[in-house]
Design a protein around this nucleic acid. Structure first.
Lengths: 252, 252
DNA sequence: TATATAAAATGACGTAACGTAAGCTTCAAG
DNA sequence: CTTGAAGCTTACGTTACGTCATTTTATATA
């Protein structure tokens, strides 16, 4: 016969919990002292461990009670339904994770102080994702759909996407220095390097992508994070200058 | 000025919820009629949509309230901590998923009627998984560790593992017909085919595995689902008979 | 054996985010 | 002016306990 706090020590559950389980009839102690103190047996401990396990895998107490009392319980049934529930929960959390990453990257781009990023993402997220997939397929060729995966997007945590976000963020910061500023040109050079690494020879695709980028509405349809028009234009100027310099190095 | 049930139609939240948000000060309607009916503006609707989004990604209402009121809120901070929380939750659900699969497969093996499978798995799950990894590394060679992944286990949902479980389950059902029964021999043949497909030429490894299998204690240490001793022995007999038949087809 | 003290018992309130029901009041149409 | 629909407030129920507050029992010491 084991006292209540000893049971707690053995299994890690609190005294309060044991009293609660007693009250709801989930685990009644085998006996009591004449004064009313609860006394548990080894059997009770085993049952408690089963309860703990079933609770851990997500069953509510009232269902655990049924499971352990009714001998005719359809274990297979409830385990499978619990499994499908768990799978759904995981999908859901995956979506939440993507939204969070989008927001975090958005703030990295826009800076924390202004609400714009948050607003944009919250609007984006409220729309239908599947629609976008369909639209995407209508605009690009099948082969280009594969390339699409390499386009940096706000939900990815790949190093590549992160660097793109960082580069664009820096570009915004240095915009007031003009497109020819060395800092800006360094960023553009790095972008060009990455472009070559990832999209070498895919000029047609890049051309299409850039046109879409220049139209905020189309960008949004494709769930591209809407980059400010003036940033895009600035980028185009800086890139033009970069190309000119490259072809004619010593000129000034 | 929009009436409360219209707001519900527009955003999908219930009237009760809107009244609740009013009460806790999360979303107060811009004005009220003299009779006390709530009137919302377009601004309110926008705010409500933000609330919905933040709720969807897992923030509690009181935190959302802070986020939307205090202008100095550290968005980056709370988004990141929420992200890490979500990641932890996903890990947790993954573990739960594995436990559930283990139980479901256990029942497929032992049959629903007897508690044995459930008991066994519940005991297995309560122990430390990392310990097992270490033990495994001490028993097998590095090269064999890779092979280990192909050993059917109770938590996998790969077709291969499922078939092994099904085969062993059937074997148990036909045990009373003796090791020479055609049904039993068919199962053994299928097992042999699979063995060849997956472990061809790895005789040393299989030998080791089999020895461990014959010892319930060692099996458990490696988190192998403990198969009953008599089933294993029966399997050995049936397999011996199978080999004999194969080498000497027409004898009887 | 009386008493001090630890530990146990019961009862009640609080939690998060609403759902649901009861009973009363306001709004808008006819 | 009536009437039915919709709105209002109040309050209890939900999950699985945590956290008091108060009282009673068990046990060790004087």
């Amino acid at each position: 016969m084991i006292h209540i706090n000893k049971v707690g020590d053995l299994t890690g559950v609190t005294v309060r919990t044991l009293r609660y389980y007693d009250k709801i009839g989930l685990l009644k102690p085998a006996s009591k002292t004449e004064g009313g103190h609860r006394l548990y047996t080894n059997e009770d401990i085993k049952k408690l461990q089963q309860i703990q396990f079933l609770k851990k895998i997500g069953f509510p107490l009232h269902e655990i009670k049924n499971m352990l009392t009714s001998s005719e319980w359809d274990w297979s049934e409830s385990l499978k339904s619990q499994l499908s529930f768990v799978l759904k929960e995981q999908e859901n959390l995956k979506k939440i994770e993507l939204s969070l990453r989008e927001l975090i990257h958005g703030i990295a781009l826009e800076g924390e102080e202004n609400w714009v990023a948050i607003q944009k993402t919250m609007q984006l997220s409220s729309k239908d994702k599947e629609m976008k997939q369909l639209y995407r397929e209508s605009v690009f060729k099948p082969r280009e759909i594969k390339l699409w995966k390499k386009v940096p997007n706000m939900t990815s945590d790949s190093p590549d996407s992160l660097e793109w976000i960082a580069l664009i963020g820096q570009l915004k910061r240095y915009m007031m220095e003009g497109p020819k500023a060395p800092k800006v040109q360094n960023i553009i050079r790095r972008m060009d390097e990455k472009r070559l690494e990832e999209f070498e020879g895919e000029d047609e695709f890049l051309e299409k992508l850039w046109k879409i980028r220049m139209s905020p509405k189309q960008s949004e349809k494709l769930s591209l994070y809407p980059i400010d028009q003036n940033v895009l234009e600035f980028m185009e100027q800086a890139y033009a200058f970069f190309l000119a310099e490259k072809n004619n190095p010593q000129a000034e």
